[in-house]
C-alpha cells in the first residue's frame, strides 16, 4: 500500500507537534498577559504583561515556520486565506493565527522598552503606537479571547479526526489548552525576577497541573469505556510502546514532579524556581509529540 499509510499513518512528523507546543505556549503567555492587564495587576505581574509576550511572538513565528515546512505544497499556503471553512479545524487555526499574530506583535511593540529602554517610535509609527496605547484594553480583550481559541484549537486539530481513535476525544481540546496555559505560566516563572510574581504563577501552575492530571485520567477512563478501537488506542499507553515515555516523561517528569517541586518551593524549601518550570515546558512538548505520533498508530480494524 502507500508507503506513508502502511503499516501505519506517517503523514505528520516533528513540525506539527512542535507547532502545537509553540502555539499552546504563545496562547498561555498571551492569556496571562491580557488577564493580568485587565485585572489591573500590571505592576504585580509585570513580567507576564511586559516581558514574556515578546517570547510569544518568537514562539508564534517559529511555529508558523514549522507549519510551512510541514506543507507539501508550500508555495500554495495562501490558499488557506481564500476561504473560511467552519468544519475544518485547520481553517479555524489559520484564521485564528491571522488574528493572534498581529495582536501579539502589537502587544510586544507596546512594551518594546523592556528590551530596548531607549527605543522611540518615530513618524507614523509613533501615531500608531499612541492609537494602540489608547485602545490597549480592547487589544487585551481580543488577546484574551483569541488566545483561548488558539489553545483549544491546538487540541481540536487532532480530536476532529474520527479515523484515528486516539485523537478522537473531545478532551484533547481542553487538555491542550490547560497544558498551553501551564507552559505559559512556566515561562513567566522562568523570566520573572520578582519573588511574589513567581509565587503567584507557581500557585496558578499547580492548579493547572491538577486540572491536566484530572483530564488525562478522564481521557483514559473514556477510552477504556468506549469501543474496541479506542480501548486499543488506550493500550498504546497502558503496556504498549508509548507506556514508558508517556507516564515517565509527561505525567511523572512533566506534571507530578514539577508540581511537587513548586509546592516545596512555596513551603520555603530552597529550590531554583526555573527547574520545575523547565520540566513543565519539556513535559508540554513531549505531550504533543507523543499524542501526535501515537495517534497516527491508532486505527480502525477491518
Amino acid at each position: 500500500m502507500n508507503p506513508r499509510v502502511d503499516p501505519h499513518l506517517e503523514i505528520w512528523h516533528w513540525e506539527i507537534p512542535l507547532y502545537l507546543f509553540l502555539g499552546g505556549l504563545a496562547a498561555g503567555i498571551l492569556f496571562f498577559a491580557a488577564l493580568s492587564f485587565l485585572l489591573n495587576r500590571e505592576e504585580k505581574a509585570s513580567t507576564a504583561v511586559r516581558i514574556t509576550p515578546h517570547f510569544a511572538v518568537v514562539a508564534i513565528l517559529i511555529g508558523l515556520l514549522a507549519l510551512l515546512l510541514d506543507l507539501n505544497h508550500k508555495a500554495y499556503f495562501w490558499q488557506l486565506y481564500t476561504t473560511i471553512r467552519l468544519q475544518s479545524p485547520m481553517s479555524w487555526g489559520a484564521w485564528t493565527l491571522m488574528l493572534v499574530t498581529p495582536l501579539a506583535i502589537i502587544w510586544s511593540a507596546l512594551h518594546i522598552n523592556t528590551i530596548f529602554p531607549s527605543w522611540e517610535w518615530k513618524g507614523p509609527l509613533k501615531q500608531l503606537e499612541a492609537f494602540f496605547s489608547q485602545n490597549k484594553k480592547w487589544i487585551a480583550w481580543a488577546m484574551l479571547l483569541s488566545s483561548v481559541i488558539l489553545g483549544v484549537y491546538t487540541g481540536i486539530l487532532f480530536s476532529a479526526f474520527n479515523a484515528r481513535p486516539l485523537w478522537n476525544t473531545s478532551i484533547l481540546g481542553p487538555l491542550f489548552l490547560v497544558s498551553g496555559l501551564s507552559t505559559g505560566a512556566a515561562m513567566n516563572i522562568i523570566l520573572s525576577r520578582d519573588h511574589a510574581e513567581r509565587s503567584l504563577f507557581a500557585k496558578i501552575d499547580i492548579g493547572l497541573i491538577g486540572i491536566e492530571l484530572f483530564l488525562i485520567v478522564h481521557m483514559f477512563m473514556g477510552f477504556l469505556a468506549s469501543t474496541q478501537v479506542q480501548i486499543d488506542a488506550a493500550r498504546l499507553f497502558l503496556g504498549g510502546p508509548y507506556t514508558a515515555v508517556f507516564w515517565v516523561l509527561v505525567v511523572g517528569m512533566g506534571l507530578i514532579f514539577p508540581a511537587i517541586l513548586e509546592i516545596l518551593e512555596l513551603k520555603k524549601f530552597k529550590i531554583p524556581a526555573a527547574i520545575p518550570a523547565i520540566l513543565v515546558l519539556i513535559g508540554g512538548l513531549m505531550l504533543r509529540f507523543i499524542i501526535a505520533y501515537a495517534g497516527q498508530e491508532s486505527r480502525w480494524l477491518y
Binding site: L9, S88, A163, Q296
Partner: peptide, 8 residues
C-alpha cells in the same frame, strides 16, 4: 496545500 489533514 498538502497539509495532510485529509490523509489523517
Amino acid at each position: 496545500i498538502g497539509c495532510g489533514a485529509c490523509i489523517a
